[in-house]
Computed example of a mutant assay.
Amino acid sequence: MTLEILTSDALSPMRHGFFTRRGGASSGIFSGLNCGGGSSDQSNVVAINRARVAASLGLDAKRLITVNQVHSADVAVIEGPLSELPRADGLVTKRPGLALAVLTADCQPVLFADREACVVGAAHAGWRGALGGVLEATLDAMETLGANRGNTVAIIGPTISQRAYEVGPEFFETFMDETAENGRFFASGKGDRMMFDLPAYSLARLRKAGIGQAAWTRHCTYSDPERFFSYRRSVHEHEVDYGRLISAIRL
C-alpha cells in the first residue's frame, strides 16, 4: 500500500510530511507504518517502515534523524547522522540533506520552518512538553541557527483532540497553577472530569512566543483508527502495545 502523507502548504517548499499508519509493513496491532523502535514490534519491520519514510523524502534511512524522546523541553541541534540518540524532544538543523523526525501516538508532532533562513525544526509535544516549554525552546534553538521567529511557520500534525482527551482535577490544577487563563482550554466532562484542548493550548503558546504563523491540521489520532495510532485508544481497548506515527521535515 502507498504511504499516506499529510502536508501543509504553509511549510512548502520544504519537503515534509505527517505520515499516517497507511502503507507500512507492520502487522497485528501495529498494522501499517509503525516507526516506533521502542515498541514491541519486530525491529527489522520498523526499520523497513522508516526506510520507506526516508525514501519518500528522497533520503537514505540514516539521514532520517530521531531522538530519545523523554517529554522534556530539551532541544538537540543536528549537524549530521547520529551514532547515539540524545535525550531531547526538539530537533533543529540548517544542514541540507537531513530530515528531522518525531514519533507520536496522541502527543503533538510539530514541524517548524523558516524558509528565508533555511532552518527547520521538529518537536514532540505532549502536555508535559508543551507545559514545560518545548515549543518555545525549539524556536529559541532555531534562532541560534539564524532563524527569525517572526518568519517561522509551525504546523501541529495529528494529535488527540479535545473531544477525546478526558482528564482529572489534578491535571486541571496543574495548568491552572501556571495561569488562570488556561481555564479556557478545558470544557466540562462527566462528574469531576474535564476535556482538555491540547492543540489550542499549544497554538496559544506559539502565538504568544511571537511565531509568524501557526496552525493545526485538525486530525484527531484517537478518533480515526484506520489512519492513526493512539496510545489512549490502545489503553481503552486493552491492547498490549501501540504503534508510533512519524512526522518529518527536511531542507
Rank of each mutant, 00 (worst) to 15 (best):
M1V: 12
G28M: 06
A130H: 00
C220E: 12
T104P: 07
F196T: 08
V77F: 00
V46K: 05
L91H: 10
S39E: 07
S223G: 12
C35I: 06
G243S: 03
E4R: 12
V77A: 08
D41Y: 06
I156C: 07
V46G: 14
S202Y: 03
N44G: 01
N151D: 13
F175M: 14
L198M: 11
S223E: 15
A61H: 08
A51M: 03
A248T: 04
G28R: 12
N49Y: 05
P169S: 15
S12Q: 12
A125W: 03
A214F: 06
G38H: 02
A25P: 01
F228H: 13
W127Q: 11
D41F: 08
T93S: 15
G58S: 00
N148K: 12
T144E: 10
R250D: 01
L11E: 08
S230L: 00
V70W: 01
E143L: 06
C35V: 05
R205Q: 15
D241N: 10
E79L: 13
A76W: 04
H219I: 02
E116P: 06
A130K: 02
A73I: 04
N34P: 03
A209M: 06
I78A: 06
D197R: 10
H236S: 11
S12P: 00
S8P: 04
L198Q: 13
E79S: 15
F172A: 09
T217F: 06
F196P: 01
A164Q: 15
A215M: 13
A101G: 12
T174M: 12
L145I: 00
S188C: 02
A215K: 10
S43P: 15
V92Q: 13
S247G: 09
R207Y: 05
R87S: 13
T93M: 05
E173L: 02
S27F: 00
G28Y: 03
R250V: 05
V70Q: 13
L251I: 13
S72F: 10
E4K: 10
A99V: 06
D197S: 11
A61F: 02
F196G: 07
G23F: 06
Y231P: 00
L100A: 04
E143W: 01
G189H: 05
S27K: 09
H16L: 04
V45C: 01
S40T: 11
K208H: 10
D241F: 00
N151P: 04
V167N: 05
S161N: 03
S27P: 01
S188M: 11
Q69I: 02
V46F: 10
I160Q: 07
P225H: 09
H238Q: 13
L206R: 09
V119A: 05
D197A: 06
R244N: 15
A55G: 01
S27T: 12
R193T: 14
L85K: 12
T174F: 04
F30W: 04
L135F: 07
R95C: 09
S234D: 09
S247L: 04
G212M: 09
I78G: 02
P13Y: 02
N151H: 15
L111H: 01
R22T: 14
A141K: 09
L135W: 10
F196D: 12
Y222H: 14
N49V: 07
